[in-house]
Nucleic acid binder design. Structure first.
Lengths: 227, 227
DNA sequence: GATTTGATGTGAAACAATTCACAAAACAAG
DNA sequence: CTTGTTTTGTGAATTGTTTCACATCAAATC
C-alpha cells in the first residue's frame, strides 16, 4: 500500500464519506452490487477517481464483478471505526447547541452525545433527554465516559477558553462551530464548521454565475463545491 | 490577471474567508496594518500562500508597507458582494432550521432570512420573529424579495423534492443540511453541510493519531482540516 | 476449456496547487 | 540623492491530485 500523504488522505477520505452515503441510498433501493462507474455517477465524480480512492484505502472489488455493497459498507465502517461507539460532549447549549443535541443522525451512526455543558446556571435546571452540566463537571464526565471528541457551540468570545479546558481534560478532537481559529497544541484535531462562510460562498458563486462575466472558467462545475 | 481554474478559486476563496476572520480579529485588537507573514501566522498558512491568494483576487498591498487592514477588509467586502443585502429563504423548521433561523451572525453579515417554510400546518401558527409559511407561498415570497439563495434543512427524504421546487422558482444557490447529494441542473450551486461527516472525520483522525501506527505522515498537521 | 468480454487496479502522464526564489518597489537613513 | 533594508508580487520549481491507459483478472459464451 502506498504511503499516504497528508493532503491525499484528506480529499479521498471526504469522498469516501460521500461514497458511503450513495451506497446506503443505493442499498435501500435494493441494489446489491455496484461498478466503479455506477457509484461514480451517483457521487458525481469519475470512475477512475472511485477506483483510485478505493485503492488508497486498500478496498478491493472483484474484477469484472464490481463491488458488493454490503462488503463495501462493512469495510468503510472499519475505516471510520464505526464498529465502536463514540462518546461525545457538547459545550454550549444556545440555539445551535440545542439543535445539535437533538440531532438524531449522530446516534444512528454510533456517535453519542453523553452530556452537554453550559455556563448559564439557569440551563442546568432544564429537564431534557440529555443532562446540561456546569463546566466544573467536565473532567468527571470526560473521564467517566472516556470522551475524546467534543463539539464546541459556544459564542466566539469564549470558544478559545473552552477549547483550552477541553484539551487540558484529554479531548483530542473538536468540531468547532464558533467562527474563530482555535489555537491548540500539536496532535489535536480541529474541524471548523462556519455557517456564515458556507452561505457566503454560495452567494459568491451565485453572483459569479449570474453576472456572467469572466465566467467561462466557472461554468457548471459547482454542483457540489465540497467534493 | 491570471485565468481562474475551477479548483483554484475554491481553495483560495475559502482561505480568503479565513483571512477576513483573522483581519477582523486583528482589527479589534487595534492592529491597523499587516504583512503577509503576520496574517499568515494568524491564519496558520504560509506567507507565500497569502500573497498568492491575494494576487489571484487582484488584491494589492504596498511594497515594504504591507497591507492596510481597513483597505483589505473593504476589498474583501467587494469580492463577497457584501455591500448589498442578500435575502435568503429557509426550508424546514425542525431543530436545525429553528436554530438557523435564530442564528444572528447571518444578519451581521447582511444575509437576511426573510421567511421560513415548513409543510407541517401546526408550525404555521407559531408566532416568532420570522414567519413560517406553507410551501404553497414559496413562489410569492421568492419573487417579492428577489431571493436567489436558500437553506435546506428538511429531512433527507424530502430534500430532493424541495430542491426541485426551489430551482423551479428561481433559486440559484443552496446550502443543504440534508445528507443527500442533490441533483440539480447545470448552473445551480449546491453547498452541502453534513454534520455527521464533520464529526466522523474528527473521530477518524483522532483514532489515527492515538493508535499511532502508520502515522509519521499524519503528524501534527490536522490543526485545521479545512484550510 | 478456449475465447471473448467487461471490469478492476495501478503505474505513468497530465494537470493543479503550493512553495521557492528573486526582481521590483518603497521607505529609511546617511 | 544614493545605499541599504524590507516587503510585495509573481514566474519557476516542486509537490500533490486527477485522469489516462492498459495489463490483469474473472466471468460468460461458445
Amino acid at each position: 500500500m502506498k504511503q499516504f500523504t497528508k493532503q491525499a488522505i484528506k480529499k479521498s477520505l471526504k469522498r469516501i464519506f460521500l461514497y458511503r452515503a450513495c451506497l446506503v441510498r443505493l442499498k435501500t433501493m435494493g441494489v446489491e452490487k455496484v461498478f466503479s462507474y455506477t457509484l461514480a455517477n451517483e457521487a458525481g465524480v469519475t470512475a477512475d477517481q472511485v477506483r483510485k480512492d478505493f485503492s488508497e484505502f486498500n478496498i478491493k472489488g472483484n474484477k469484472r464483478g464490481g463491488y458488493d455493497i454490503n462488503d463495501l459498507l462493512e469495510r468503510m465502517e472499519k475505516i471510520f471505526h464505526r464498529n465502536k461507539d463514540h462518546n461525545i460532549v457538547l459545550i454550549g447549549m444556545g440555539n445551535m447547541g440545542m439543535a445539535l443535541s437533538k440531532y438524531n443522525k449522530f446516534v444512528q451512526r454510533n456517535m453519542n452525545i453523553v452530556a452537554t455543558f453550559d455556563i448559564d446556571p439557569f440551563k442546568h435546571k432544564i429537564r431534557s433527554d440529555l443532562p446540561i452540566y456546569p463546566m466544573s463537571r467536565l473532567k468527571e464526565i470526560i473521564d467517566r465516559f472516556r470522551v475524546r471528541v467534543a463539539i464546541i457551540a459556544v459564542p466566539e468570545i469564549s470558544a478559545q477558553e473552552v477549547c483550552d479546558e477541553l484539551v487540558r481534560n484529554g479531548i483530542k478532537g473538536v468540531v468547532n462551530f464558533a467562527p474563530v481559529l482555535l489555537k491548540v497544541p500539536p496532535g489535536i484535531v480541529i474541524n471548523n464548521v462556519n455557517l456564515c462562510d458556507e452561505l457566503e460562498s454560495v452567494i459568491y458563486y451565485v453572483h459569479q454565475l449570474m453576472s456572467g462575466d469572466g465566467l467561462k472558467n466557472i461554468e457548471l462545475l459547482y454542483r457540489d463545491m465540497k467534493y
